[in-house]
Design a protein around this nucleic acid. Structure first.
Length: 467
RNA sequence: GGCCCGUUCGUCUAUCGGUUAGGACACCUGGUUUUCAACCAGGUAAGAGGGGUUCGACUCCCCUACGGGCUGCCA
């Protein structure tokens, strides 16, 4: 079962929260590695000192943790490895696969602008590429890769297929900046190589980069990893996901009350399929997941399906685990924590709550009977069921409930008889009961609630409502 | 502008030259029901457009349209 040669990684840049698309990328890497006994590594691409923040790193780690995506080993900071990156850049120099370029940023910018205005492709070709080192000035320089100028570079991508790039379309990219810090193009390759990454699964915005990165691998004589560039997620309107679509950060989904297992399931199925499999656990997903099941087209977010998937997972969840996740939700959503009594009652009630909710807010709403304390204040919809006639029936019922045995068969007997006596159907009786017991119109079965609450509490609520 | 990728029901997708184009969500109808949720039965709904190749194309090729990505001393 163990397949030690498989190593994947997730490598976000810490410039904000964990994006929902990033979460899915991480998920795919995690599923692929874990399903094959491989390793899933985490690297923070923090070489951009201007935009990287420790807060963002913390947010990314929180997001991954909430999603249940555990990584192997320590989190790698790309910035911490800058010396190694610089060493590799200099080794490329020695190997003759890179060169020093003394062109200034201003010169290059001016060149690009001029070329674009002339309607040409602004491909900058450094005059220093083949310069004699004896002519080098004593000025700051960058190290550029000496990329092949002819032929083509082929990316054999597990998702996109074979993608060909003409080498004369690619410039000699900078690998080491004039301040001696590495660029992303160099850092990713060096890190992926050093970390032993075998499969690079990432967003397809990196597809073109893969060609340039391949050149770095070749320049260093390193084995090129297996590529899998997955399409980005789009908003419901098919446009690139942006702020106006609402929730972008993974943590926002936690705050909205979606369970992590449901999120994982939904995100796995978004852009990936394995026959007709729709609802599955993460273990099942690991067993099924494969790179060629990933679609080539960007997928759109569909909240209805997300909710349905989450509902299925809530219904199947273990009571205690679900309650634990519910309490975590309460925390992040800024809602008051459960008292011990509420906790205990909710745990006993979970069996009749979990199959009627798709999200935690819904579950909480159905659980109102267990959370509220007397006096029960009915909401507007429930209040209409507590008219004079209903209150009379409730009053009569209260007397009978004080004596009977507190078990379902007996309660059924009493309630059915009460309905018959009042000349109404059971449904007509159930609504005032709900209003009195829970203050709501949508609740679990009245029997479940009465049994859970116990005789004293039930009778007290009924008599209060009866007035 | 150049290069690259994509396009099957409203949405996520199956299909890997021959199917009445299947499933799921959503929606509609009916049923069940103690409200909500769930559940059962049924239904509406798709190969972007145009050319080829082929006995036969959703599937292979080309063009167009639309969407996306890259084109930084950002990642």
């Amino acid at each position: 079962m163990s397949n030690p040669q498989i190593v994947t990684r997730f490598a976000p840049s810490p410039t904000g929260y964990l994006h929902i698309g990033g979460g899915r990328t991480a998920l795919f890497n995690w599923l692929f590695a874990r399903g094959r006994g491989g390793k899933f590594l985490l690297r923070i691409e923090d070489t951009d000192r201007e935009r990287s923040t420790p807060e963002a790193t913390a947010a990314i780690l929180r997001g991954l943790t909430w999603l249940g995506l555990d990584w192997d080993g320590d989190v790698v900071s790309q910035f911490d490895r800058k010396d190694r990156h610089a060493d590799v850049a200099h080794e490329m120099l020695t190997r003759g696969t890179a060169y020093k370029c003394f062109s200034t940023k201003e010169e290059i910018d001016a060149f690009r602008i001029a070329e674009e205005e002339a309607g040409r492709y602004p491909l900058f070709l450094s005059p220093w590429r083949d310069a004699d080192p004896s002519t080098y000035p004593d000025l700051p320089y960058v190290i550029r890769m000496k990329a092949p100028r002819t032929g083509e570079t082929i990316i054999d991508d597990k998702v996109q297929g074979k993608v060909t790039f003409r080498n004369d379309q690619l410039d000699d990219m900078i690998v080491l900046r004039s301040d001696l810090t590495p660029t992303y193009m160099l850092a990713v390759v060096v890190d992926d190589h050093d970390m032993g990454v075998t499969h690079v699964i990432r967003g397809d915005d990196h597809l073109a980069n893969a060609a340039r990165q391949t050149m770095v691998y070749q320049a260093m004589d390193w084995p090129v990893p297996v590529w899998a560039h997955i399409p980005l997620i789009h908003g419901p309107d098919g446009k690139k996901l942006s702020k106006r679509h609402g929730a972008l950060g993974v943590e926002e989904y936690q705050v909205m009350g979606y369970p992590a297992a449901g999120m994982r399931n939904y995100l796995t199925r978004l852009g990936w399929a394995h026959g007709d499999a729709e609802i599955f656990t993460s273990d099942e997903a690991m067993a099924m997941f494969d790179l060629d099941g990933i679609g080539r087209a960007p997928a759109r977010l569909d909240f209805k399906k997300l909710e349905h998937t989450c509902g299925q997972h809530i219904a199947k969840a273990d009571d205690a685990a679900l309650l634990r996740e519910l309490e975590a939700y309460l925390g992040v959503a800024g809602k008051p924590p459960l008292t011990q009594a509420q906790h205990d009652l909710l745990l006993r009630a979970m069996y009749c709550l979990k199959d009627r909710a798709k999200t935690f807010p819904e579950l909480l709403d159905k659980a109102e009977f267990a959370l509220a304390s007397r006096p029960i204040v009915p909401d507007a919809a429930a209040a209409v069921h507590l008219d004079a006639v209903s209150r009379g029936i409730l009053r009569a019922l209260t007397l009978q409930l004080q004596n009977g045995i507190w078990e379902k068969a007996e309660l059924e007997h009493i309630l059915t008889a009460a309905a018959t006596e009042a000349g109404i159907g059971f449904g007509k009786l159930a609504q005032p009961l709900r209003a009195a017991i829970a203050g709501r119109t949508a609740t679990p079965s009245v029997y479940d609630m009465m049994l859970l609450l116990g005789r004293d509490e039930t009778v007290a609520r009924l008599s209060e409502a009866a007035g």
